[in-house]
Design a protein around this nucleic acid. Structure first.
Length: 257
DNA sequence: AATAGGCCCAACCGCGACGGT
DNA sequence: AACCGTCGCGGTTGGGCCTAT
């Protein structure tokens, strides 16, 4: 049972967008937003389907899009995130402000895949060539959940609870599996308990990068790597240098141990 | 100068998720 | 619970540009 096309093709324009069409779309969204993509083209006076409009806006016309070449740092981040997230381009894009999933997908297929393959053999010979999904599954809960607005503002935020799955072999195995769930700590003691009880040990090249929940002004972070446990706060100088942030999530590259 | 091949990137396609009825 | 409409995502395509021969 086939699904009907997203829009009637009759009379609708396809292919590259003209300057006039861009202007129509930008002006309409500036005035009215985009509550309904399907209805938008008609209202904006465009002979396009809603899907095409949404794509044009999200991938090209949005004012917060950063145009221009990717920096080396951005490329490195994409490569590392791809190790963890696989082909989840939107998830990767969410961690690179100003970059779109389409852009990242393009650059991956044209440049970074090659770059990764070139650099990988000597760095991490035990990693498979094309991991499609992570062996680390981390879920984060929104720190400022709008549904919880009536709860106390300074309530402790979420901690990430990590358990190692039964692994078939030693810690040097590249197939070690981890799962992770969120718990809400009710006090700093219990938070610390959770963090000390559940240290993340990742035995691959991603081990220098961790995800952590964030409080209003404090970060709880524990990482067991090479027998080091690392705790940090916003006051650490290196923290800001290596921090990439979006929404309530933080990505942090740890300094050399 | 011509052209074949590769690269780049905007745009399209099809599918699954999700929310409303 | 089932259906329907809409949205967002990942995969793919195709055309323009660049470069090597």
């Amino acid at each position: 049972m086939g699904r009907s096309p997203c829009c009637e093709k009759l009379g609708l324009k396809r292919g590259p967008w003209s300057k006039e069409e861009d202007d129509l779309l930008i002006n309409y969204i500036k005035k009215n937003g985009h509550p309904n993509w399907r209805a938008l083209p008609k209202l904006a006076g465009l002979l396009r389907c809603g899907k095409s409009c949404r794509l044009r806006w999200t991938n090209y016309l949005r004012p917060d899009i950063k145009r221009g070449n990717f920096t080396h740092q951005e490329e490195d981040i994409i490569i590392k995130l791809h190790q963890v997230l696989g082909n989840s381009w939107s998830a990767i894009a969410a961690r690179l402000p100003g970059r779109t999933d389409n852009e990242i997908k393009n650059i991956w297929h044209t440049r970074l895949k090659k770059k990764r393959n070139e650099s990988q053999p000597q760095e991490t010979p035990h990693i498979q060539s094309e991991p499609e999904s992570s062996n680390v599954d981390i879920h984060l809960e929104e720190a400022n959940n709008s549904k919880d607005n009536n709860s106390e503002i300074s309530s402790p935020k979420i901690n990430t609870e990590i358990q190692q799955q039964p692994s078939s072999s030693s810690s040097t195995s590249s197939s070690s599996e981890y799962s992770c769930s969120n718990t809400t700590a009710t006090s700093s003691e219990s938070r610390n308990q959770i963090m000390s009880d559940n240290l993340l040990e990742v035995d691959d090249i991603w081990s220098e990068v961790v995800w952590a929940p964030v409080d209003d002004n404090y970060l709880d972070l524990s990482l067991m790597e090479d027998n080091y446990q690392i705790n940090c706060s916003f006051n650490d100088d290196w923290f800001w240098d290596d921090l990439f942030t979006r929404s309530n999530e933080l990505m942090l590259e740890l300094p050399e141990l």
